[in-house]
């Protein structure tokens, strides 16, 4: 085999490998569609974030508008402070309501934004004041049991 055909084969091989990598990155991974264009940061404080994870989705009306970029515990307020990266194309009113929701019964948790009616929009670095924590299924069950028990105790 002469050197030139060998080089050609290696060229074909490397091209195929690179195409496979690009395929993995764009078609399989989230590098293609879901990168946020010039995102801005918002924070929100929750009593309980449940199993929300960094890089979890932020959705509004079911559309992904951003990602959770950081979750930390605030030692002053004893609450969880969640930092959100929101796509620069989307603006939300000041009185937007942030809820931690679950996709399906046992699925991933994400943050849902319900826009309010305020004229003023949230700017980068603002805090969302109105939040609703994650529903913790154990608490739900114990609440249910407690209610049942107290119902049964009534004469």
């Amino acid at each position: 085999m002469s050197r030139t055909t060998l080089d050609a084969w290696v060229g074909v091989f490397v091209t195929m490998g690179v195409v496979a990598l690009v395929f993995l990155a764009l078609k399989v991974g989230n590098l293609g569609g879901s990168t946020l264009s010039n995102p801005y940061k918002l924070t929100a404080e929750f009593d309980n974030v449940g199993t929300l994870k960094v890089r979890g989705a932020v959705k509004s009306s079911g559309v992904v508008v951003g990602r959770v970029s950081d979750i930390e515990f605030d030692p002053k307020t004893y609450m969880a402070r969640v930092t959100l990266s929101i796509d620069g194309r989307y603006k939300f009113p000041k009185d937007t309501f942030a809820k931690i929701l679950t996709s399906g019964l046992l699925g991933e948790q994400y943050i849902g934004l319900s826009p309010g009616g305020d004229e003023q929009m949230l700017a980068s670095g603002d805090t969302i004041a109105r939040t609703q924590s994650a529903v913790v299924i154990e608490e739900l069950i114990s609440q249910f049991m407690f209610n049942k028990a107290s119902e049964g105790a009534k004469p």
Partner: peptide
């Protein structure tokens, strides 16, 4: 099939680590 894959497979966490 494709959209769930794309929303769950992270480029840096999964693909770069695999490479």
């Amino acid at each position: 099939f494709w959209s769930q894959m794309q929303s769950m497979v992270d480029f840096r966490e999964d693909i770069v680590n695999g490479v």
